[in-house]
């Protein structure tokens, strides 16, 4: 099953299971979604459960909050994560804070699905990886799956969670295929997955970078370095313990992300690893991330901006050298 179909199946199953769940977003209904993720759901569940919205991201996202406060469990789609800029107030000032500001009077069971990442020459406003912005916002959960099985299991858990969840898909993963367990499949939020075991170096990563790190790990294995890969799966809550346990075993740490380097996810991971695993480290941890500039359109320039397998190999070799 593809990553896209896994997400579609999760949505269909949750729509089927819970009458309070409904979808809303731009082009999610009749058209089936700009990324074709919601294809067939409008036909199956009707326009009440799968609602096409105007290009009004603030109204869509703010609308989910009004729906939540009155008893529903909406799942909104923001077509590209880059578009969150126009509804940032609703996400960060309203949704993320409302439970706390109201002293726990409400639960906020909503999901904002979106997709990010580059690799398709979509240029600076359609290629970003903005998850760090939201990891920096208390009150939001941030889920960012790398495989079809996780995409399905994590999305189902996100929809059932009583907190707001930003669910970030990756545009280059939609056609990736993988095994998805039959029947009810739930992946709890806040549990990292050890993708590959190894004793020479820990690499923590997520989303599309998991695949690149796996390719790098093959090369490193041929050079005699066994890499342990930790797919974080959710950034909030963050499964530190799985990461720390791995670093205590390997003594070396590399964070790999597709977002920008400065004040990125890797900065946070490195800080936590340094603080908690200091006595186990054989050297300073390192980060691989996008260069600190807007994502260019031209394929060669985009490649020179986003992390590549070669960048991971170079950083890993320096760490174990």
């Amino acid at each position: 099953m593809t990553y896209r179909d896994a997400i579609n199946a999760a949505l269909a199953e949750e729509l089927e299971r819970d009458e309070r769940v409904f979808l809303l977003g731009e082009d999610v209904g009749l058209f089936g979604g700009a990324m074709a993720v919601t294809k067939g759901l409008y036909e199956r569940f009707g326009e009440r459960r799968v609602q096409d919205m105007p290009i009004s991201e603030s109204a869509i996202v703010g609308g989910t909050l009004g729906a939540v406060l009155t008893g529903l469990r909406p799942v909104a789609e923001i077509m590209f994560i880059d578009f969150v800029g126009v509804c940032m107030d609703q996400i960060v000032n309203q949704i993320a804070k409302v439970r706390y500001m109201l002293g726990g009077q409400v639960e906020v069971p909503l999901v904002i699905r979106t997709q990010g990442g580059g690799g398709k020459s979509y240029a600076a406003q359609h290629s970003q990886s903005l998850e760090a912005w939201f990891m920096h916002t208390p009150g939001l959960k941030v889920v960012i799956p790398s495989t079809p099985a996780d995409a399905k299991g994590l999305l189902k858990s996100a929809i059932r969670d009583n907190n707001p969840v930003l669910f970030i898909e990756h545009k280059l993963l939609y056609n990736e295929k993988g095994e998805v367990p039959e029947g009810e499949h739930l992946v709890p939020l806040g549990q990292a997955r050890v993708v590959r075991e190894g004793s020479g170096l820990t690499i923590a990563t997520y989303s599309r970078m998991v695949g690149l790190v796996q390719q790098a790990a093959e090369g490193l294995a041929a050079e005699g370095t066994e890499v342990e890969i930790v797919d974080l799966r959710t950034l909030t809550p963050l499964d530190e313990e799985t990461m720390f346990a791995s670093v205590r075993k390997t003594g070396r740490f590399l964070a790999v992300e597709e977002g920008h380097l400065t004040a990125g996810v890797g900065a946070e991971l490195v800080a936590r690893v340094t603080k908690n695993c200091f006595d186990y480290l054989d050297g300073p941890p390192e980060r691989v991330a996008a260069q600190d500039r807007p994502i260019p359109c031209a394929p060669a320039l985009e490649k020179a901006t986003l992390p590549q397998v070669e960048d991971i190999l170079t950083a890993a070799r320096a760490l174990v050298g």
């Binding site: 996202v61 609308g63 009004g66 729906a67 406060l69 529903l72 609703q90």
Partner: peptide, 17 residues
């Protein structure tokens, strides 16, 4: 102005229910 979308969401919810 931030309450306006929330009110519309309540409206969507009323219509939905």
């Amino acid at each position: 102005g931030a309450g306006l979308p929330i009110a519309v969401g309540a409206g969507l919810s009323i219509q939905y229910r």
